[in-house]
Nucleic acid binder design. Structure first.
Lengths: 338, 338
DNA sequence: GCACTATATGTAACCGATTACATCTACTAT
DNA sequence: ATAGTAGATGTAATCGGTTACATATAGTGC
């Protein structure tokens, strides 16, 4: 006798409906091949018992997990969470769920285990990697599920990628500053090993080179408010003080604004500032921030879609570059005395 | 013959090591009960084959999923993502993974399916609910896994909860303003049906009642920058303009500051402002924001720990109230002319 | 030397679905 | 009337582990 508290199994439904388990399974997964009469009886039995499939059993049999794992460097960072929202959206439409792993924290675990133990077909049907600092060797195990890189990317790791057009965005930002007459432009970057930083630096160099210029100053930050704040001191210390700054993200730009204002400099009168990302706060900063818009949720969605397509028909090395656009607000102004 | 591309199974390891599958399983899960000699042989075979357990098969047999599902109202909201980070941390230590479901988006799906289909023991070993607006009936199915409510809570849903001390935080904030001499205090709230809003409103009322006062104005916001910005207009429209505002979260407070400054009012000279949450941006706002600190990652961690404890030994209706503290920065000042 | 116990390992049932294959029925074509 | 076929359903193998139970071996006490 079976404990009535237990969740009903397909067998219970079958018995109640007077059919075999196979028929019940068919009603649930492919109703069109079973006779109307039978189907109705089974549906009634399902309703009466309150049966729902045991997802684990189905997954085992079908050799799939029903979920995609996202590797994020820092889950608490709002930048990533809106990408995740886009990913979750696209996955749910396909009946897949979203698993999340914070790589910075997981890393600290046992050296052999840690992240690696999650990179198996038995744990996820696919991987979306948002952390460009991971070792490409992690993904070379034969049991590693299909991978799509999004936002950041890993040098030496092939496979599809979805990226924002970082170089173009940086170029737009700097061209905007140049157009306002600025020539002494500082670049507050992300960590130098970060792939985003690198491609944004390339965009900056490109825009400046068109006029035969180079950044008068560069400071390496960490994409944080605090590092932007610290950049204010660096700016003041420059012998030829920059009149404009491009920051690799909005958080650093906002931190920088706060730091400059605390030192008595005014934005945009004394210094023009451009950020990157267009986080929600950018529009509500003390001085609304001119920045480069990047559609993060959309990027996440495209990454998930690409993963699903890639699973169906592997397309190596497809690279999707999403457009970005400059949003001009009030943190930039023509060079004084120009 | 087995396709050598396939992931090795426990059977392959057993054959290579010259032992039974049971022994291999024991080496992996409970090494102490197998002889040293045998253990070494098995470990060698595991290394040679590159075997890793099939998580789905193990989970099916052990009747567990290996993951906990967090229900969040809005994944893109940084407020929730740092709670998730805390949850993920605590779960990983127990070998569990974090599944995420964005309830606002999932809601829009089929009425019968949607969220409900995720609330099954076969999909998650436990639930952490961060959305107080959900229907308690969702969790009454017999197959629903153990639930812990965190941060927000659902009226009519019993079970353990982890909350910040919202009433005390609001009281601290208002007492601080009263102590600075302010008497005309406005309260910018979250949505009135939100449980957080309700308990914060209670704290506000309590603090004011001690002096026989009531809020001179109240405006219902949506926890967003935009609604805080809109509150600036409401404040200006008051016949007796408030000299201080308590906002139910930092985002609204920052939006409000921006709105007031755009209208020529100065913070804190003309209006003092207190927020709630202590998001990172609070310290870097144009005027650093006085606010109530709530340790979000810690709250998430405690929620996960409570869930794990609850699974082991169900403790109904345990309620954990985490302390909060006032962080005084520069957005509050003594009443002018007091 | 014998019974008994502890330790180590193997055998096979089991978790709960899906699905290849077998079977049965009813109908069509010759 | 008979074979052939399509459609509906049942039977049982299968996914890949874990673990209760059985068995074998070595060690202990009297």
């Amino acid at each position: 006798m079976r404990d009535p508290e237990q969740a009903p199994r397909i067998h219970d439904v079958a018995k109640l409906a007077g059919v075999s388990v196979a028929t019940v399974s068919r009603v649930l997964s492919n109703p069109s091949i079973v006779a109307e009469r039978t189907r109705l009886a089974v549906e009634k039995a399902v309703a009466e018992t309150g049966y729902t499939v045991n997802v684990m059993a189905r997954n085992l049999r079908q050799q799939q997990v029903g979920g995609v794992l996202a590797l994020v460097p820092n889950l608490a960072n709002p930048f990533f969470s809106s990408i995740l929202a886009g990913i979750a959206d696209a996955l749910r439409e396909e009946g897949l769920s979203l698993l999340v792993l914070d790589t910075r924290r997981a890393d600290t675990g046992s050296p052999t285990g840690g992240i690696r133990s999650y990179l198996t077909r038995s744990r996820a049907d696919g991987l979306i990697v948002l952390d460009g600092s991971l070792d490409p060797a992690l993904f070379s195990q034969p049991s590693c599920p299909p991978v799509v890189q999004a936002c950041e990317w890993i040098d030496g790791l092939a496979g599809p990628r979805v990226l924002a057009d970082n170089a173009a965005g940086a170029r737009f930002a700097v061209e905007h500053l140049l157009g306002l007459g600025h020539r002494r432009i500082m670049h507050v970057t992300g960590p130098s090993e970060n792939t985003l930083s690198q491609s944004r630096a390339a965009g900056v160099a490109q825009a400046l080179a068109a006029l035969g210029l180079a950044p008068v100053a560069r400071m390496e930050g960490a994409f944080t408010l605090a590092s932007g704040h610290a950049a204010a001191a660096a700016l003041m210390a420059e012998p030829e003080r920059p009149t404009a700054v491009f920051c690799d993200n909005d958080e650093m730009a906002i931190g920088l604004m706060a730091g400059l204002q605390a030192r008595g400099l005014r934005v945009p009168d004394d210094v023009s500032i451009v950020g990157f990302d267009n986080i929600e706060m950018a529009a509500y900063a003390n001085v609304p921030l001119t920045t480069v818009r990047q559609k993060r949720a959309h990027l996440g969605r495209r990454a998930a879609e690409m993963l699903l397509a890639h699973r169906a028909a592997p397309k190596l090395d497809e690279e999707l570059i999403l457009p970005v656009e400059l949003v001009i607000r009030q943190s930039t102004a023509p060079l004084q005395g120009a």
